[in-house]
Design a protein around this nucleic acid. Structure first.
Lengths: 252, 252
DNA sequence: CGCCCAGTTGATTGCTATCAAGGAGGGTGG
DNA sequence: CCACCCTCCTTGATAGCAATCAACTGGGCG
């Protein structure tokens, strides 16, 4: 069906063109051939925009789509209904994929909200399953993403289970540094995408403790912190403190 | 090709027949139609047996296959080469699937060793990928398993990040109880598949602390412990202590 | 029978949570 | 444009939980 395009259609079309997206290589399309990409692009329903603090999906919501972050940042977390206590599970930045937690029983098992105004590419699960059938490359990418997510969680478990607070922070700063490097940004100067409160929660410590650890790292001339702006002064020392090898670029 | 079967062949054939496996419904075949199952069965290369303390695969090993536990129990863990420190990531019991951690880059990212003599069904990844192409049911099961694994990790992160030691133990005992129930065993009397050392490590505490928490639970008449034998006396109280809803049957 | 390892129990230290108060931006309204 | 407030963050003092060190107990196994 041929159809006239007005300006609106045109602009919509363009934002969902993976081909021109700077994140192409780290997102789903990264493992797709050009032919496959053509088919794939047609199935992204749209780019959705969510405002700061707005929820993308919540625990118990029906799995409707998987998402790729195009711009902005979001956090995922579990909330215990009884005592209002929450655990931040991860921070997700451009290029990250979201929503796999809903594959278990078609219901999301965690909440995801935007930490700032963000844009996400939405890929409805129905389309996704069909695409998996016809695009071998997509299955491969999918499996890689799953593997990455698992590895990331392993790392988080190690961090929470074995490290003390200073090590946890050092480890996370290195991880973030790797992320920015992998995206072509400076790996020594960057901004924390989240407030102290959330980062402390994620790292399993009190906000006060996080603040003290930042202060300690500054005193040791390892980093400088000004509000959310981080400058890594001594990567080696940070590594020594982290006691963990930064095995792979990752964002949470 | 018709071929004479000797006793050996026959027994080998039978152990890889998913159709007759008591774990069929919780394993890969659970989501497959009868037709699909026929195709699937042919691709399991073999049932492998590993002895206690023997390694199934290690970090850095090439991803060769995914595995389903048929009998026994194994643990997965990360080891930090620098300080010999390890973090147990999970305990895996019959019906559980293993090996997805290697999907990221075709290399396993953790170690897996047997806690007792065990049997596992091995499904080479090459076969697996081919099967995914032709068996929609397998893709579905695969996605479910992935979702489960993610949910389980979320839960573990919550446990390690937010709970104190008693809550962690209570939560884990309930989880184990759910597992046994889902497999048709008693949910109030069961054996711990792992030594104290490993359980303490998994739960992010010192073995001495674990011992004290067991003692505390016994003193509160919540459970009785004799070596590895656990009897849950008061499920409700255990629930209250755990501060977490047992959302789904899981084994780690 | 005795060794050895797993597990328990006790005493102490130390890290981190908690409670409390003070300071610094950023936004809003006057 | 300034004052105010509110949130985020930092800093200090205290308390509590769990790690560590150490000694002991009891099975399992050769």
């Amino acid at each position: 069906m041929v159809k006239l395009l007005n300006m609106n259609d045109l602009s919509k079309k363009q934002i969902s063109k993976c081909e021109h997206c700077s994140l192409r290589h780290v997102c789903f399309p990264g493992g797709l051939s050009d032919d496959e990409l053509g088919i794939f692009e047609g199935s992204i329903s749209k780019v959705i925009k969510i405002k700061k603090k707005q929820k993308l999906f919540g625990r118990g919501d029906k799995l409707h789509a998987v998402y790729a972050i195009k711009a902005g940042s979001v956090k995922s977390f579990l909330t215990n209904p009884e005592d209002e206590q929450t655990q931040v599970l991860g921070f997700h930045l451009p290029g990250d994929l979201l929503g796999f937690d809903g594959f278990a029983n078609q219901l999301h098992s965690c909440d995801v909200v935007a930490m700032e105004d963000s844009q996400l590419c939405e890929l409805p699960v129905d389309n996704f399953e069909q695409l998996c059938e016809i695009l071998p490359g997509l299955r491969k990418v999918m499996m890689q993403q799953v593997g990455n997510e698992i590895s990331r969680h392993h790392s988080l478990v190690l961090t929470l289970g074995k490290m003390q607070t200073e090590e946890r922070l050092a480890t996370y700063l290195l991880r973030l540094s790797c992320y920015y490097k992998s995206r072509g940004y400076s790996c020594t100067e960057f901004n924390l995408p989240m407030p102290r409160h959330d980062l402390a929660n994620f790292l399993g410590m009190a906000p006060e403790t996080l603040s003290r650890m930042f202060a300690r790292l500054e005193a040791a001339k390892v980093v400088t912190i000004l509000r959310r702006q981080v400058v890594i002064l001594d990567v080696q020392k940070l590594h020594d403190l982290s006691h963990e090898l930064c095995r792979q670029p990752a964002s949470d």
